[in-house]
């Protein structure tokens, strides 16, 4: 489809160029002097007009006329008999062939190097109808504007969740922070904030996230999300035993139907294996909080 359209365009353009080149009856233009004389005679009539208007004295006009007359003579004299050659028809056909070959092949090659053949347009309105992410993003944007005017904690929490879904972790973290600032100062919010920061740092529990989790546990020492991530932080610091201890502690506190249990158990097994010890030998222990 793309290539057909491009080929059509190319043929159209090339044939416009080839037409004058291959046409049999070439009209011959008048000699150069004809063009010159046309200008000179228009200059002469301008002089006449200026004399009529009285802008030019007769004397000046005569001088100007003499000059123009002389230029006319010179142009006529310098004008060789114009020999518009029909030229070599073969050369023309050869040129046409080169053009007909060079343009399509050259354009095709360059396009395949620079273009993204087959890539459709993605107008925003279209995406807004079909692409769920764009729909959500636009909702988030509207919500963000609304919140800007009438901020409330619940709204920001929702916005943060949407951003998290859209993988816009930085914005999500910022929204959680706003929700906390606006009064949702609870363990859940803090641990979500920490999680968003971790996500924004592609999985690393950075100091900012650490302090968010610490905050969460300071409010509710049993907050599971924060405990999980603090375990992960320990694991990332190569303190595998500490990590396992924290996670086993979390495992013990979790109800049997807790959604995170499968993941947690998988982690415990995997990390214990990496550390080369039996997880059961590590006594469960809550995370050590340096500063609340």
């Amino acid at each position: 489809m793309y290539w057909i359209a491009f080929a059509f365009l190319t043929v159209l353009c090339v044939s416009a160029l080839l037409y004058p080149l291959l046409r049999r009856n070439q009209s011959t233009a008048p000699a150069r002097a004809e063009y010159d004389n046309l200008v000179y005679s228009s200059q002469l009539s301008e002089i006449a007009q200026e004399v009529d208007r009285g802008v030019l004295s007769q004397e000046q006009a005569d001088a100007a006329r003499t000059e123009i007359h002389r230029r006319m003579l010179s142009a006529a004299a310098g004008n060789k008999r114009t020999t518009h050659s029909e030229g070599n028809r073969r050369a023309r056909i050869a040129a046409a062939a080169v053009i007909a070959l060079l343009v399509p092949v050259g354009s095709g090659l360059l396009y395949s190097a620079l273009g993204s053949p087959g890539m459709p347009d993605q107008p925003y309105a279209e995406r807004l109808r079909h692409d769920p992410n764009v729909i959500i993003a636009s909702t988030a944007h509207k919500l963000a504007v609304q919140l800007e005017n009438k901020p409330y904690a619940g709204g920001y929490q929702r916005l943060a969740e949407i951003y998290l879904y859209l993988n816009e972790y930085d914005r999500s973290a910022a929204a959680y922070q706003r929700a906390i600032d606006l009064g949702d100062n609870n363990a859940d919010m803090w641990s979500h904030l920490g999680e968003a920061i971790v996500a924004a740092n592609s999985g690393t529990v950075v100091p900012d996230a650490l302090s968010a989790f610490t905050h969460a546990l300071g409010i509710d020492a049993k907050e599971p999300r924060a405990r999980y991530y603090l375990g992960l932080a320990a694991a990332q610091a190569h303190e595998l035993k500490t990590a396992i201890a924290i996670w086993r502690d979390l495992e013990m506190d979790s109800t049997a139907d807790a959604p995170w249990l499968p993941l947690l158990r998988q982690r415990i097994t995997a990390y214990a294996k990496a550390g080369g010890f039996d997880p059961a030998t590590v006594p469960p222990e809550p995370p050590l909080l340096s500063k609340p």
């Binding site: 489809m1 793309y2 359209a5 491009f6 365009l9 190319t10 353009c13 160029l17 053009i99 060079l102 343009v103 050259g106 354009s107 360059l110 396009y111 620079l114 273009g115 993204s116 053949p117 087959g118 890539m119 459709p120 347009d121």
Partner: peptide, 20 residues
């Protein structure tokens, strides 16, 4: 389609200008 046509037209224009 339109965007890619835009690019192709520009490339074609490059060759046409060379001939011109």
């Amino acid at each position: 389609m339109i965007v890619e046509t835009g690019l192709f037209a520009l490339i074609l224009a490059l060759f046409i200008s060379a001939i011109q």
